[in-house]
C-alpha cells in the first residue's frame, strides 16, 4: 500500500468535529421533536379527520415514505425558491428531516393508537374528561409507551440523516465540518474515518441511554 496515514491533523481538529457533532445532535433532536408533533397530528387526521384532511395526511405520509430523504431536502432547498422563499441549508435540512420523520412516525403512531383499547377512551369520557384531556392524559401516554422502541429507532435514523446536509452545502454539522477539513487537507480517509467513529459512538450512546430510560420509565 503506497499510502501514508496522517492522523495528526485529524487529532488537531477533533474539537472542531466534536462541535459539529453537537450541531448534528441539535438538528436531529429538533427534527425529532417537531416531527413527533406533526406525526401525532397526521395520525389523528387519518384516524378521525374528514376526507380532505385524511387525503392531505396521506399525501404527506406517502411522499415521505416513498421518496429518498435527500430528494425531500432538495425539494425544500431548491424547490421552495420557486415561491420566492430563500431557505438556507440548515433550515432545509431541518425541515427535510422533520418532514421525513413525521411521515414515518405517523405510520408508527397509527399502529400505536390502535394498540390502545377503545374502552379506555370510553371509560375516560364517561368519567367526565373532555376529548382533548382524554387524548392527553389517557390515550397519548399509553400510545407513546407502545411505540417507544420504534421512536428510538427513528431518532437514530434522524441522526444518520443529518449527514445529508453536506449535499446542500451545510458546513456546521459533523459531516459538513469533516468535508470542510477534507477539502482543505485532502486527508479524506482519516477525517471520514474519525467522523464514522463519532457517528457510531453517538448512535450507540443514544441507543443505550434510551434502553436505560425505558427500563426506568416502563417498570410497571
Amino acid at each position: 500500500m503506497a499510502y501514508t496515514f496522517q492522523w495528526r491533523p485529524v487529532l488537531h481538529s477533533l474539537p472542531e468535529m466534536l462541535w459539529g457533532a453537537l450541531v448534528t445532535l441539535e438538528i436531529a433532536a429538533l427534527a425529532m421533536a417537531i416531527g413527533t408533533v406533526f406525526a401525532i397530528l397526521l395520525a389523528l387526521a387519518k384516524r378521525s379527520g374528514g376526507k380532505t384532511l385524511s387525503a392531505l395526511a396521506d399525501i404527506w405520509i406517502e411522499t415521505a415514505r416513498n421518496t429518498p430523504a435527500l430528494f425531500q431536502i432538495y425539494l425544500i432547498y431548491f424547490g421552495l425558491g420557486s415561491f420566492g422563499l430563500r431557505v438556507d441549508s440548515y433550515s432545509a435540512l431541518l425541515l427535510g428531516i422533520t418532514f421525513n420523520n413525521a411521515g414515518y412516525l405517523a405510520e408508527t403512531f397509527r399502529g400505536g393508537f390502535s394498540a390502545v383499547p377503545e374502552t379506555q377512551t370510553r371509560a375516560a369520557r364517561s368519567l367526565g374528561l373532555g376529548q382533548i384531556r382524554t387524548m392527553w392524559h389517557i390515550v397519548l401516554p399509553q400510545m407513546l409507551r407502545a411505540v417507544f422502541h420504534a421512536m428510538t429507532n427513528q431518532m437514530v435514523w434522524s441522526i444518520l440523516m443529518t449527514s445529508l446536509g453536506v449535499v446542500v452545502g451545510l458546513t456546521s454539522d459533523l459531516t459538513g465540518v469533516t468535508q470542510q477539513l477534507n477539502v482543505v487537507t485532502y486527508r479524506t480517509f482519516e477525517y471520514f474515518f474519525v467522523a464514522a467513529c463519532l457517528y457510531y459512538l453517538i448512535s450507540k450512546i443514544f441507543t443505550i441511554s434510551a434502553r436505560l430510560l425505558a427500563s426506568r420509565l416502563f417498570r410497571y
Binding site: L160, S163, V167
Partner: peptide, 10 residues
C-alpha cells in the same frame, strides 16, 4: 450505525 454517505466516501 454510520451514515451511508460517510460509508460511500470511505
Amino acid at each position: 450505525s454510520i451514515p451511508l454517505l460517510i460509508q460511500l466516501v470511505l
